[in-house]
Design a protein around this nucleic acid. Sequence first.
DNA 1: CGCCTTGTTGCAATGCGTTGCAGTAGCATC
DNA 2: GATGCTACTGCAACGCATTGCAACAAGGCG
Lengths: 160, 160
Amino acid sequence: MSAARAGADRHADVRARLRGRGSRWTPQRRLVLEVLESAEGHVSATELLERCRRRAPATVASTVYRTLDVLEELGLVRHTHDPSGRIEFHVRPTAAHGHLHCQACGARTEIGAAEAARLLEGLEQAHGFHADLTHLTIAGRCAQCRDRGAQALTRTLQVQ
Amino acid sequence: MSAARAGADRHADVRARLRGRGSRWTPQRRLVLEVLESAEGHVSATELLERCRRRAPATVASTVYRTLDVLEELGLVRHTHDPSGRIEFHVRPTAAHGHLHCQACGARTEIGAAEAARLLEGLEQAHGFHADLTHLTIAGRCAQCRDRGAQALTRTLQVQ
DNA sequence: CGCCTTGTTGCAATGCGTTGCAGTAGCATC
DNA sequence: GATGCTACTGCAACGCATTGCAACAAGGCG
C-alpha cells in the first residue's frame, strides 16, 4: 500500500526505494518529485521542465529528463509519445492503459487496461507480440472532430 | 491503375499530380522521388536524407522533409514514429496497415489492414474514435525477445 | 522567347531531447 | 566528524526535426 500513501511519507518512500537500488536522493530529484505530485494526468516533458523552472529557475533540462527516466523505472510515471512524436508523461499511473489522441483537436482519452488488453489480445495470438500498453498512443479522430468532417484532419495531418 | 505503373511513367504521373494541385516539379523533388523508388519497406527520415546526399551531397535537410510531406499528401509514402519518437517512412504503401516495433531487438512487423481494422473496431464503438491506421505503431516485445526473458527489455526501456 | 506570379529552396535559427565528460556531492563506513 | 567511493549534476555539443524569411526558379501567359 506504500504507493497509496500521501504527503511527506511519499518522499521517504521514494527515497528508500532509490537507496535500495544504489541510487541517491538529491535536491533535484526532490524538486521533480514535488512538481509531479502537484500534477495530474498527461503532461508534456516541456511543461514539466517549465514547472520545475518556476520553482527553481536554474533547473537544467538534462537533469530533469534523467530524473524522469529514473522515476519511470520506479513506476511513478509512464511516458508515451503524442502523434507528432513528442514525449508525454502520465503522472501516477494507477494501472496499465493506452491513449487515444485526436489529431484534429488534440483531445486525449484513455483506454482502460482491460479494454486495451482485449484489443491487443489478437496480436498476442497472431504474432506472439507482447504489446507495451503503457507506451501505446493511438492517433486518429475523436467523435466530435469526426462529425465535423475531414477538412480539419487533412490540414492537421499536413502540419502535424 | 496509375499507381501501379512503373519506371519513367511514374515521374510523369507524380509531376501531373503536383501540377494538378498548383505545386511544382523541381530537381529536388525528383531526387527524393528517385531515392524512394529504390527503397523498400520502412526507412527512417535520417536514412532517406543520407541516401539523397549520396546522390547529391548539397542536399538540404529541410527541403527533404518538406518534400516528404508533400509526397505523403499524394499518398506515395506514409510516416509513423518508432518507439523513441523518431520518424519512419513507409515507402509505397499498398494498403492502410499498422506497425509492431520490438523495443528489445528493433524488429518491425506489419499488421495487415484487415487485422488492424478488426483490432480497432472496438474503439470505434466504445469511444467513437476513428483511429488512423497508417500512423499506428505499437511498441512491445516480439515473440523471440519475449522468450529470451525480461532483462533485455528492461535495459532497452531505460536507454530508449 | 521573355515576363511575372507564386510555390520552392537554402539558410540560419529554434525547439526538443540525448549524450559525454569533468567536477560535485550523497551517503556508507570507520 | 572525516574519508572515500561513485552516482549525479551541469555544461557543452550533438542529433533530429521544424520554421521564418529572403532569394530563386517553375511554368503559365502574352
